[in-house]
Design a protein around this nucleic acid. Structure first.
Lengths: 346, 346
DNA sequence: TTTAGCACTCTCGATCGGAGACTGCCAAGA
DNA sequence: TCTTGGCAGTCTCCGATCGAGAGTGCTAAA
């Protein structure tokens, strides 16, 4: 890692111009283009000198000797940290997002799916959405349904109207009437508790009351962090958008990325760790530990749901992306999603 | 469409050899290769004559004058209808499938997801799975949960332990106690009925009993055909497999296909109409109405669940695929899926 | 009906060369 | 000291050319 080299104002303007031009055209940008489009007062020779410096300090690179310059990961990082102008989503985009949610089904899953869809659409990249983290969510309602004599379906309604289900096997046959009574009792006992609280109380309960204990254990399991992590679903949409980017003409890159998307677990890990601190987190190229993301950037943020519950939402695209615009749109969709989720019950 | 030309036995053998060789190598197969590998008794010149005939009758085509022959859609169709030897899945594949389901979560969605995953894996193509068609499924249990004073969550457990949920808004505020009483009553009334029966009885009920009527209406809606069709989810997996096939090096084809997969509705239509008659339905190339499937083949069948309920499962791949093997594996996964679904409640 | 022989066609890959785009460096000018 | 014009050098890209290789269709003989 190079130590942070301070950039004087002109170098900053040149770096900014290179990033801006390159993200739009996709072509390495040369000194003449810069002089003509962005720095009429300067000659191309002067800009060449500056460009050589920026290459030396690691902000830019040349694909080959006689080509223009393109940003390095470091150059993009400097750009997003210091140079990027804040952008606002255009009215057209706002309308698209609003309309998308209008046709969303009134369920958490349905809304998140719509969010993934519209985010992919407006950013023209692949969108990612994790299911909400529920280990701290309070339980709102429990229901027990007899499937077979010794087999019970547990239905949990959590804060934010999120529904979890789990099948449990009992040692003794139990009728639906028994189950209904048990459900009524459980509702009195567990309502308003979180999984953590429940599991603490469970430990204090002792080994008696077999069926009930078994059921509560399974309830805890189905909403605990461990479980959630193991099978966290990462929704994604918009893979077709990637095909339009010239950086994916060689199929091998696409293949790595697809594998990452289809297996999900590794991505889930990245999404869970990240993005709970800053408002929007950007990870550029090799900053990602995953080798499949070597030439991709992630723009991530979170969405909220019933205050305590939340998940991650964002996009993944080539490092050469219009960061300002993507950030604005990711933020917009995240806010809209939170809002729609908040109104779910009304 | 050419009228069906009868093929003598030697032409059949040659067509079969061309299809077999081409599906493995991916290279147009010439008269010399055929003579050497499949017809030692014949000279290449004889085979050339036969090949010319097969081109004339539309079973084969030449990419260009000096290339070997490849099957046309018609050639593939003849092959799968009359020439294809039945194959059985290998023990290795059987084991893979069995193991995949062992780690599946005990829910319909989870099992179908696993099915899509393992089918993509063993066929090395894109797998497709529709959600089960539930309009004829009997209702097993109803539960009503108060989300907000005027907002109720309906939870329906159907035959096969399939869970449907729906949010409904009431005109009057209703407490959870009221809802629980109503649920108990509904359970007595609607248990064992199908959506169709329920909707018929609803019509006879008259306009009184507002809340209850509203709730039943929504129940019917959430499991009726129309609703199901509108939002039938088509699971798919294994897009990365396509990248390995040389027919998808040009990205435009991939793009069309991805769009079809990501929007889903059109595919859902194809999957629903098809494959309820024969055991395994094969659609080859231009037999598909969708332009995105011009150069693809579908191999589809159904899976069962609680007898009445069923959905479609299959794969989509390039027309040049090993049909015998794919058919065997699609059938295997479909059977395994049905079996696992049948044991869901035990 | 089958086969050997042969001329012909087309693709594919390698090679080559020129146009174009930029650069780096140098020396002169502000 | 910074800037600039000039210029030689380098590299990619594109199109043309060419030869090898593969495979065919046709013809005439078996």
């Amino acid at each position: 890692m190079l130590e942070p080299t301070p950039l004087d104002e002109r170098k900053q303007r040149i770096l900014k111009a290179v990033v801006s031009d390159y993200t739009v055209t996709g072509v390495p940008v040369g000194s003449q283009v810069l002089a003509a489009k962005y720095f009429i007062a300067l000659s191309s020779a002067t800009i060449r000198n500056e460009l050589a410096d920026l290459v030396g300090t690691g902000y830019l690179q040349q694909p080959h000797t006689s080509a223009g310059r393109i940003p390095t990961d470091r150059g993009y990082r400097y750009f997003v940290d210091f140079l990027m102008a804040p952008e606002a989503a255009t009215p057209g985009v706002r309308r698209t997002v609003r309309q998308a949610f209008e046709s969303a089904p009134r369920s958490v899953d349905g809304i998140l799916e719509k969010a993934a869809m519209v985010l992919a659409q407006v950013t023209e990249n692949v969108s990612l959405v994790t299911a909400p983290e529920v280990s701290e969510a309070r339980i709102k309602h429990v229901d027990l349904v007899s499937l077979e004599p010794q087999s019970v379906l547990i239905i949990l309604v959590l804060e934010g109207n999120l529904i979890k289900q789990q099948v449990v096997h009992l040692e003794r046959a139990t009728t639906q009437d028994d189950l209904s009574r048990m459900a009524a009792m459980l509702n009195r006992k567990v309502k308003g508790q979180t999984a953590d609280e429940l599991s603490a109380r469970l430990a204090a309960l002792g080994p008696d009351r077999d069926e009930q204990r078994q059921i509560i254990e399974r309830m805890v399991e189905s909403i605990s962090v461990h479980q959630a992590q193991r099978q966290t679903v990462v929704l994604h949409d918009g893979v077709r958008n990637l095909l339009r980017h010239p950086e994916f003409v060689e199929v091998s890159r696409l293949e790595e990325l697809l594998e990452l998307l289809e297996q999900g677990a590794q991505l889930a890990g990245i999404l869970q760790q990240v993005a709970f601190e800053k408002e929007v987190e950007i990870m550029i190229g090799r900053e990602n530990t995953s080798s499949g993301l070597r030439e991709c950037s992630l723009v991530l943020t979170t969405y909220k749901m019933a205050d305590r519950v939340r998940g991650s939402i964002g996009v993944i695209g080539p490092t050469r992306m219009h960061y300002g615009q993507v950030v604005a749109r990711v933020r917009l969709v995240s806010q809209a999603t939170s809002e729609v989720l908040a109104h779910l019950g009304n």
